[in-house]
Design a protein around this nucleic acid. Sequence first.
DNA 1: ATGCAGATCGTCT
DNA 2: GACGATCTGCATC
Length: 202
Amino acid sequence: MTKLDREFYLQDTITVAKSLLGCTLVHETESGKTSGVIVETEAYLGTRDAAAHSYKRKTERNGAMYGPGGFAYVYFIYGMYYCMNVVAGAEGTPEAVLIRALEPAEGIELMQSRRKTGKILNLCSGPGKLCAALSIDKSCYGADLTGDRLYIERPAQEIPQSDIAAAARIGIDYAGEAAAYPWRFLLRGSPYVSVKPKEDAL
DNA sequence: ATGCAGATCGTCT
DNA sequence: GACGATCTGCATC
């Protein structure tokens, strides 16, 4: 397993969002190592995308999105959940990829205790759930994903394009026509996704 | 199986 | 002062 390097994250955001499928997100902490295979992502394309936190301007919260690819953009939402994004593209392009679901891999017992559920299918099937399972919070804001605590590994064998499905993104009805853009990507047929897509594009 | 309300608070206007 | 890139439990069909 080799760690994704800076070059990977500097690619265009849609490519990064698709290429992250099948990769393994790893978080090593004092209480142990937890990881899962990424099965669902969403691309947020900055100034071109009314659904993106960086659509309008740089603020205290979205600052990490404006940096170079390969750093974590973690935000707190609904008063109780964290969501993790992978910043993509060159510095100055405020784009990122939301990690929406994982297939649990290492540290399953630890994840179960953090999430207070025994059901593997329910451990990491949503952006808030996987952050709780891997203990990703505000302290991970801006973390360098080429480092050795929070990082992503390349899959053993490449994922064929035919295994990638595209669909509309979740929870962004406020975003007008951007709400329909097919910038949500899923590993076709995975039972670990957050919401099964009605129809696949691509 | 599907739907809705409640929890809960940092960030932006 | 309003509102989320959400999740859960409880209600109803």
